[in-house]
């Protein structure tokens, strides 16, 4: 008897949750999503995967790792917007090694923040791309993040803003989710480990984190251990 009541309550709760989620997304329901290739991560996301037609943010030294995880699940070309003054340049064989084949990556070398955000918007608006990646040199303010989000919705394209430097620079942002990817000591050289934290997600659970391992031989990702649920600062 009590079981039936609980399940009925759950159904009601789920319906309410879906309604709230729809309101939060401005009435957009049933968006397409892309799997991260890892069921444990997908399950935490409210829509069962990374929402397309939205811009996500990745911080930390391995921020580009999010691109590698997503790109393995998507087909089609990527636009990668970089700043001409960046100290390190994207490297073809390195992209290849991460499973990002250079043939499918168009790199737009932009002079400064304005050009870079413009290029990202243009890329997000066309539906010819699988994803748009951007590494803005400065802070993306609320207005800029909202513009990116609107462009992504218009083109139904996935956007990823990379922020490899330390420190949170998107205090208030209209982006869909924020990930933090740090390096972690690996078991051996052929299996690098990343500590993946979902720092913020609209309608998602607060700060789940995982230890993800990448097999360089096969290019597959695997969750080796869900980290204990403690504050990020303590890690």
């Amino acid at each position: 008897m009590s079981v039936a009541r609980t399940s009925r309550r759950n159904v009601a709760m789920d319906a309410l949750r879906a309604q709230v989620a729809a309101i939060e997304r401005g009435g957009v329901v049933g968006r397409r999503t892309v799997s991260l290739g890892l069921p444990a991560l997908d399950a935490t996301l409210p829509e069962g995967g990374l929402a397309l037609g939205a811009v996500h943010e990745a911080t930390g030294p391995i921020a580009a790792g999010l691109v590698a995880m997503v790109a393995a699940q998507l087909e089609g070309p990527l636009l990668w917007c970089v700043d001409t003054d960046a100290r390190a340049l994207l490297y073809g064989p390195g992209l290849d090694a991460l499973g990002l084949h250079p043939a499918r990556i168009v790199i737009a070398r932009c002079r400064g923040q304005t050009d870079l955000l413009w290029a990202m918007e243009e890329g997000l608006r066309t539906s010819a791309l699988a994803a748009v990646v951007g590494e803005p040199p400065g802070i993306v303010d609320l207005t800029a993040s909202r513009r990116l989000q609107l462009a992504a919705e218009a083109g139904d394209t996935l956007g990823i803003v990379l922020n490899s430097e330390k420190g949170v620079r998107f205090a208030a942002s209209a982006l869909e989710s924020r990930w933090r990817i740090d390096s972690a000591p690996a078991g051996d050289m052929a299996r690098p480990r990343w500590k993946v934290v979902l720092e913020r997600c609209r309608g998602g659970i607060r700060e789940p984190h995982w230890m993800v391992e990448r097999d360089e031989e096969t290019g597959h990702f695997a969750v080796v251990a869900a980290l204990a649920d403690r504050p990020v600062a303590a890690l």
């Binding site: 073809g92 992209l95 790199i107 737009a108 070398r109 002079r111 290029a119 890329g123 066309t126 010819a128």
Partner: peptide
């Protein structure tokens, strides 16, 4: 069309692929 659009503002030598 996208590459034209980017190239006209950034320069066509700035919209590249790594070969």
């Amino acid at each position: 069309p996208l590459i034209d659009c980017l190239g006209n503002r950034l320069g066509f030598d700035q919209v590249v692929r790594l070969a």
